[in-house]
Amino acid sequence: MKVYSSSTQKRYFLISMLAPSLILLAFFSLYPFVANVKNSLMHYNLTEPFNYYFVGANNYLRLLGDKLFWQAFLRTLYFVVGAVSLEFLLGLGVAYLLKDDFRGRNIFRVIYILPMGATPIAIAFVWKIMLNPSLGIINYVLSLVGIHGLDWVGNPTSVIPSLILVDAWVWTPFMMLILLAGFLTLAKEPFEAAEIEGASAFQSFFYIALPLLKPLILVALLFRIIDAFRTFDIIFVITGGGPGRYSETLNIMTYLQGFKFLHISYASTLAVLMLIILIVICTFISQLQGIRET
């Protein structure tokens, strides 16, 4: 990117643009962060108010040695990778279909955003009842065409894929919206030039559009990964982490430790570990694609 000549004016400009955001974020995020790190180093269970003492890395060691933690971690990865890749593919496809001028595109653009606008609480309950094998509409419709539906979220093997589908239903619009806006902002010339040179639509999509969209694609992926990692409403309402622990993700585990069992130190430790995992994943992705170098 082009760099402006250095000057005091530029410095003031830079500071005036950056400062409000950074001050706000620092002000609001440092305190909970410090509180969490501190709690993760203590023995802190709300049911033992007189038993509050420093334990160093004990909570971390205990969690890292706990197979339940690693199972939840792998399960979370499964959910995140499944949900985000599905959302990305669908979102990219739909954004591509909607980027051109054709009659009716505006209606589609509005309707496709709706799932994201539907309040998660209400929609999670509606999905739960729809997925119910005996009270739900999905298996009923399937039975009309002669398919015996699954016990979607009651079965250890199908519970995560089912939750991925629900998550994809809600969040594909997020991908679509960002990528569609990206498509619409792209300059036209490279495509026109390519068409003149006889490139197929396929070629211009992969060799021109995707590289230009890369920064936005990465942003959309990063945010979906972060948010999918912390998915709560959908999983908690539909399965509560069950059957067994087959849908207990790290975030559900954190909630249970903190709010059901009142183990503040374990919940904080889990939170810090999740933070570290996310930092590693996001650093990896952004390094891989050179986004931090742009």
Partner: peptide
């Protein structure tokens, strides 16, 4: 039990009964 009973909390139990299922 009904199919999917493993995700039944009280709302589903009551709904199943209310619906005569």
């Amino acid at each position: 039990g009904p199919a999917g009973v493993i995700s039944y909390g009280w709302p589903e139990v009551l709904a199943g009964l209310q619906q005569g299922k």
